[in-house]
Design a protein around this nucleic acid. Structure first.
Length: 195
DNA sequence: AAAAGAAGCAACCGCAGTCGC
DNA sequence: CGCGACTGCGGTTGCTTCTTT
């Protein structure tokens, strides 16, 4: 997984690619002590070889304590569809109405799940003119009718984050889920490490 | 059991807007 | 008022995992 991370040389100042657990902990710790914001200087001060943008994204999408991961509920899906029909691809705006959900998550969800259903529905209705559909975004107007949440809902299995365990030696549950750690784990670690 | 293809997700990139100097 | 730095957003890409053959 880390094979593509360019952290190999002395001039590799900016890391890219997946975050390691060490980096996550550094970021969590730093924000817990200093607060978030001013991401560029935060990244530097925390000693992370990441861009401020990268830190911000990681924090907002994964590390924040209030981020909910896991199944999108039927209610949430319905809400996403309604709000998307209303606002289009304003993911951050939509995300604000779904506590704990991030714009990235909603965007991915939309693209991978709902759009698929729309396409299938479109194929089903070939011949039905989608002329009122201007483009991608307009297909949202069809969503509420063609994509009923009750049967459109799929069981979404959240991917367990598989951190780089070699880089971290922390108090992880070793018996079950040895490769699986959650944000609760991370935060408990943070609480243990930080003060 | 292995290979190929499809699906899902995390992260990066580029652009536009905002703010401070 | 202009400029540069920073932030936030949406689109896109690439990797991993799952499913099918």
């Amino acid at each position: 997984m880390d094979k593509k991370i360019c952290n190999n040389s002395q001039d590799a100042e900016v890391r890219k690619g997946p975050w390691t657990m060490e980096e996550d902990l550094i970021l969590i710790n730093y924000i817990a002590n200093h607060g978030e914001g001013v991401w560029n200087s935060l990244a530097r001060s925390a000693g992370l070889k990441r861009t401020g943008k990268s830190c911000r994204l990681r924090w907002l999408n994964y590390l924040r304590p209030d981020v909910r991961r896991g199944n999108i509920t039927p209610e949430e899906q319905l809400l996403i569809m309604e709000l998307h029909a209303k606002w289009g691809n304003r993911w951050s705006k939509i995300a604000k109405h779904l506590p704990g959900r991030t714009d990235n998550e909603i965007k991915n969800y939309w693209r991978t799940r709902i759009q698929k259903h729309i396409k299938q529905a479109d194929r089903t209705f070939t011949g039905q003119n989608p002329t009122q559909v201007h483009h991608d975004q307009a297909s949202t107007s069809q969503v509420s009718s063609s994509c009923r949440p009750d049967n459109a809902v799929e069981t979404y299995s959240p991917p367990p984050f598989e951190g780089n365990m070699e880089t971290f030696h922390g108090p992880f549950p070793a018996e079950s889920n040895e490769n699986i750690w959650s944000m609760e784990d991370l935060w408990s670690i943070q609480l243990l490490n930080g003060d």
